[in-house]
Design a protein around this nucleic acid. Structure first.
Lengths: 250, 250
DNA sequence: CGTGCGCTTGATAATGGTCAAGACGCGTGG
DNA sequence: CCACGCGTCTTGACCATTATCAAGCGCACG
């Protein structure tokens, strides 16, 4: 679970220069306010636009970046959804977060110059790539930008620590309730419904993330539905009673 | 679980100037190599010495810093031990890490300008305080230092994510084994025994950190002892067979 | 010399995992 | 167009792990 930065450029930024003309600028982007909550002047946004080298499209299962690979860029998710994960010593996958449009990822690589996590597309997705060295140069000119990158890094820490608490102190039901509420809030931020969600991830992924088995996740969805808190139809979720859900999550 | 930076100055850095004379310099410090693994010239160390304003002593239960308080400094632990924790929404404590001498803490506050965690002394401890604004100034002169602070931040992320994996995928026995091995390694780094440990934290703290109850932690210690892997005498632990322990931890 | 806290141990209960089976949906290839 | 197979999801029966409750011990501290 990362945060926000920007969006830009052509669907597939390749060598063809006039193809690159048909780009969306950050200032036009629907996700502008999520991605860049800091107050940037129009001229600053234009400068940011210029450093965003390319934006690419990923099919379900394709990687945005991989654990241990050299860190070169930050990324912003424009459309679709992603999961971030690490491999454990014995080769199992541990999902550490999901990303929705407008959220920024890749900050974990800043310090070591290598990515700590792999990030995979859960569905067809498009991302904007922000070369870090050029972002650093720009940060020197726009102090708010530097500060913003720092903020995103510590949000990563804060979110990880919240997940630690969730895993350490909460029951299976509480974990699922907390995840649903979290997704609901992030959906609302995208000006989408906070009550009607389309889960981009499988039950297995949810279980992996929350430290539960698929079966348990499935049973809890059923239980919540019987209790009238949710309507579940495959990956379409309708939250009928977010108050009870919130109370449960604590 | 933080990392390293520095150590310095007098036992109680107060206003009395000639009391401040009797300081230990970073270059004299026994923890030098742990705290400052980067290769700094002698002159650089001297400059670092100068910005370390004071070093204070904490009694068991006293706070080094508190959640939501303004962030002003990074800290290095010189002697003793600490626990870092956050309070959950319903007032429970979630321990997110323990610190041993030579380790640096407080980085979580960099981005938001507020500390994300509280840090409490588990026993009488002494810490060095490094005012962040002055560290930033110095970083401009010593690029390695800047890089080092970044590195420590991402180590925080990496450690949190390892804890997430531990909590999400491992049994109670595996969690305890992993913690013991971790402490053993950190003890060895201090040129102390890697097999004879004095646990600075209570069983309750261990349970809190690992998402287990006190009873479970206690039973596992007993079980490990019966299996010949450990000798447990109150908080003194002797690791008899670290290979089996490591195999168990996975 | 008590009182309280930290630790251990036992008995019991509950939560969640494992194993197994089947339904449903989707894409592939005959 | 249908059949097949695979992956995802659900549900049930059973079991294991860990939590809860309760009691007792020993040490530190007032």
């Amino acid at each position: 679970m990362g945060a926000r930065l920007t969006e830009a450029n052509a669907e597939h930024g390749d060598a063809c220069s006039h193809k690159n003309q048909q780009h969306t600028s950050c200032s036009d982007c629907r996700l502008h306010s999520i991605c860049l909550p800091i107050a940037l002047e129009a001229s600053d946004i234009a400068r940011l636009d210029q450093i965003i080298e390319r934006s690419s499209s990923l099919e379900r299962g394709q990687m945005a970046c991989e654990e241990d690979q050299p860190f070169t860029s930050l990324y912003a998710l424009r459309t679709g959804s992603l999961k971030a994960y690490r491999l454990t010593a014995d080769g199992k996958e541990q999902i550490t977060g999901f990303y929705l449009p407008g959220e920024l990822f890749g900050v974990d690589g800043i310090a070591q110059n290598r990515h700590l996590t792999s990030v995979m597309a859960l569905e067809t997705s498009s991302i904007c790539e922000i070369p870090f060295t050029r972002l650093e140069e720009l940060s020197a000119l726009i102090p708010d930008l530097q500060r913003h990158v720092f903020k995103i890094m510590s949000q990563e820490i804060a979110q990880d620590q919240q997940l630690i608490t969730l895993l350490s102190k909460n029951s299976a039901e509480q974990r699922v309730a907390a995840l649903l509420l979290n997704l609901s809030r992030r959906s609302a931020r995208l000006k989408l419904s906070s009550t009607a969600l389309r889960l981009p991830m499988s039950r297995t992924d949810i279980g992996n993330y929350l430290g539960l088995t698929v079966e348990t996740v499935s049973r809890i969805f059923s239980r919540f539905q019987k209790a009238g808190m949710l309507e579940v139809e495959k990956r379409e979720i309708h939250i009928c009673n977010s108050d009870i859900l919130a109370e449960l999550a604590g």
